[in-house]
Design a protein around this nucleic acid. Structure first.
Length: 405
DNA sequence: TCTGGGGTCCTAGGACCC
DNA sequence: TCTGGGGTCCTAGGACCC
């Protein structure tokens, strides 16, 4: 009794709903940087072949009249939060799978899965009237099949798959339509002569296990449309495992000094977000993407718990200093893992306590007057860049904060 | 006018400890 | 003479998701 709700062209839909002049027009939501891509194309733009991931140049070539709108993540997270509230009036069991997708466990709501159809129609109607947005809803006995069902009719779809329908639906379904099978897995399966779920289901499990290990077993069940994974509500969601930011720079960078400034800025953003969620972390990872798009990540763990942007930066810089770069870089990323929550409540050295107080004071100012209102002199020149980085997509209040250790 | 940003999970090898 | 077994932690890299 699972419902999967997938918002149609979510970011574009929100922009069209906020700005009536964009309704019915081909629009593309993009980032604010120079090297940006289309994040979401409205259905009007998709009719011209515009797709997610295309460059602005490509989108323009396919659709000269396309209106490009710089995305506003706050709007999308706010809308997501309100949508989740709406879903909660139907069931307490809501999983926020991504900013535009939710799973609803409707068990107990109705006796027969057929009875969920009018419920889904009511939800769709409520979303249209409150948000001027459409969605596709899939109803099925489990999450895997519900997600497949929501994908079958777009936009504004409603597909119900009964238990008895599953074998028929799976038989001819391409394997890559399953959530969890990407390009590489599809290629592997192709060379084994497997392209549909029907073929995958008939492949001996032993052969799959030999080839893919633990995943093999999983593949077999997926191919049969079997899935026992539960809907995970917000308070059951495990705490985050890493916090990071990355940035594609407007130009290719060979200058180490410029790279370091960029790392400092990314590190400050990471520290800010960690402190907001009461995280500290012990492992810093540096990601570098070269101009030829090859990339690598290097990590370094330290004994101390990091929460301060500058301290994170020092570790990231140390990694960079120990790295031979083969060519100029286009992207840099900093992330912190090995997270713990509320370690800072432990008794600390006096210097550490002073640092926490200073950091708290800076946070208070930046909370009140905006990010980077007070910052390091080195970052003043970079201020423009600060707005380029998208905030976390997670809707407000979704993240669970654990107190105590 | 070349190609975003934020994550999770898994594997595999090496260091180190008992 | 010829080198065990179990465990944790760390790092690198890849596949996948939105």
């Amino acid at each position: 009794m699972i419902m999967h709700i997938d918002m149609n062209a979510f970011f574009a839909g929100v922009e069209q709903s906020v700005n009536p002049a964009l309704r019915g027009k081909p629009i593309g939501v993009i980032g604010s940087g120079k090297r940006t891509v289309v994040t979401t194309a409205s259905y009007e733009a998709r009719a011209f072949g515009v797709r997610t991931g295309m460059t602005v140049y490509e989108a323009h070539k396919l659709c000269p009249q396309i209106i490009l709108v710089v995305g506003n993540n706050q709007r999308y997270t706010d809308t997501c939060t309100k949508l989740v509230e709406l879903y909660h009036s139907y069931t307490p069991l809501v999983e926020v799978y991504s900013i535009d997708e939710c799973f609803l466990d409707m068990v107990g709501a109705k006796k027969n899965i057929e009875e969920l159809r009018p419920v889904a129609l009511a939800i769709k109607k409520a979303i249209v009237s409150r948000f001027k947005l459409t969605c596709s809803i899939g109803i099925a006995p489990n999450k895997l099949v519900a997600k497949l069902a929501s994908d079958m009719e777009k936009p504004d779809g409603l597909v119900l798959i009964r238990p008895a329908d599953i074998p028929r639906v799976m038989e001819r379904l391409p394997v890559e339509d399953l959530c969890g099978i990407g390009r590489k897995m599809r290629e592997h399966l192709f060379y084994m002569g497997i392209t549909t779920c029907g073929e995958l289901a008939r492949t001996p499990v032993e052969r799959l296990k030999k080839r893919f290990g633990v995943v093999g077993e999983y593949l077999h069940h997926m191919a049969l449309g079997e899935d026992t994974s539960p809907v995970v509500t917000v308070d059951q969601t495990p705490a985050d495992k890493s916090v990071g930011h990355s940035m594609t720079i407007d130009h290719d960078v060979a200058d180490r000094d410029e790279m370091e400034t960029c790392l400092l800025q990314l590190s400050e953003k990471v520290g800010r977000r960690m402190r907001k969620n009461h995280f500290t972390g012990r492992t810093v990872a540096l990601t570098v993407r070269y101009t030829d798009f090859t990339s690598f990540t290097k990590r370094k763990s330290i004994p101390e718990f990091l929460y301060n942007g500058y301290d994170i930066y020092l570790v990231a810089r140390e990694i960079l200093l120990g790295t031979d770069l083969k060519m100029p870089v286009r992207l840099l990323g900093v992330s912190v893992a090995n997270l713990a929550q509320d370690v800072l409540q432990l008794p600390l050295l006096e210097d550490e306590q002073k640092k926490i107080k200073a950091t708290d004071a800076l946070d208070a100012i930046n909370n009140k007057y905006g990010e980077f209102t007070v910052t390091r002199a080195r970052l003043l020149e970079q201020y423009e860049h600060a707005g380029v980085i998208a905030p976390s997509w997670k809707p407000a209040g979704v993240k669970r904060v654990e107190f105590g250790m």
